[in-house]
């Protein structure tokens, strides 16, 4: 069975994520309303304008069902604006809508469009081949809480990719560069969430956090 992964389709580069998910054999589902989240095993929040996306998430009551999806253990991946939307603190005081990552995020951290750039980035958990990373008016993580793993930093030490349990976020856009490893990581996590596996020798207790009453 293919893994159904939702892509928040309120605004932004959601079509590129949909295409990337198809390319790796997952089944993408565009989400504009809460009911579109039924039966999905993971979620991508794409790049776009975070101010627009935050307003639309609130307007269409998507925050609560996304928070519930996250607390069930389903993986969520945010790129660029998606990273901003998932952060607990937005530097400058904007109100967070999906405070799932215990990080502080700084919007437009590199400057304006003229400072947008591409680079080769080491992401050790993805192996030795660097990620070709496209940064567009990109945010950076300016502070992390104790439960957050830093997946990648720029040579100057600025944090541009993080993971906290089932939540992943990158400042850059794998979906613009033919890079599929983040999506495959997400799909693997989503498949494990959908079917934790009850094979021979496996200890028989539930692995879904929702079944622990959380």
């Amino acid at each position: 069975m293919t893994t159904r992964i939702a892509v928040l389709a309120l605004q932004g580069a959601f079509a590129e994520h949909v295409a990337t998910l198809r390319a790796i054999g997952a089944e993408p589902v565009e989400v504009r309303l809460p009911r579109d989240l039924d039966g999905v095993e993971g979620l991508i929040i794409p790049g776009g304008e975070s101010t627009t996306m935050r307003r639309l998430i609130t307007r269409w009551d998507l925050a609560q069902p996304i928070l519930e999806l996250a607390s069930s253990g389903a993986p969520i991946y945010g790129t660029c604006a998606g990273m901003i939307v998932l952060s607990r603190e937005i530097v400058g005081g904007e109100v967070p809508v999906l405070p799932l990552l215990d990080v502080a995020v700084e919007r437009n951290a590199f400057g304006r469009q003229l400072d947008s750039f591409e680079t080769e980035l080491d992401v050790p958990v993805l192996g030795d081949t660097p990620v070709h990373a496209v940064f567009i008016r990109a945010p950076v993580i300016s502070g992390v809480g104790p439960g957050v793993d830093v997946m990648a930093t720029l040579p100057d030490g600025r944090i541009v990719a993080v993971r906290q349990r089932n939540i992943i976020a990158t400042s850059f856009h794998p979906e613009l560069a033919g890079e599929t490893r983040f999506h495959r990581l997400l799909a693997t996590m989503a498949a494990e969430h959908a079917d934790p596996g009850e094979g021979v020798g496996r200890r028989q207790y539930p692995t879904r956090r929702s079944q622990h009453g959380r």
Partner: peptide, 21 residues
């Protein structure tokens, strides 16, 4: 190697504006 204002970043900003006003 880091390059600013590439074709991918120019075209990419427009991709981020899609579905918007």
């Amino acid at each position: 190697m880091t390059d600013t204002s590439t074709w991918a970043t120019k075209k990419g900003l427009a991709q981020m504006l899609k579905g918007g006003v």
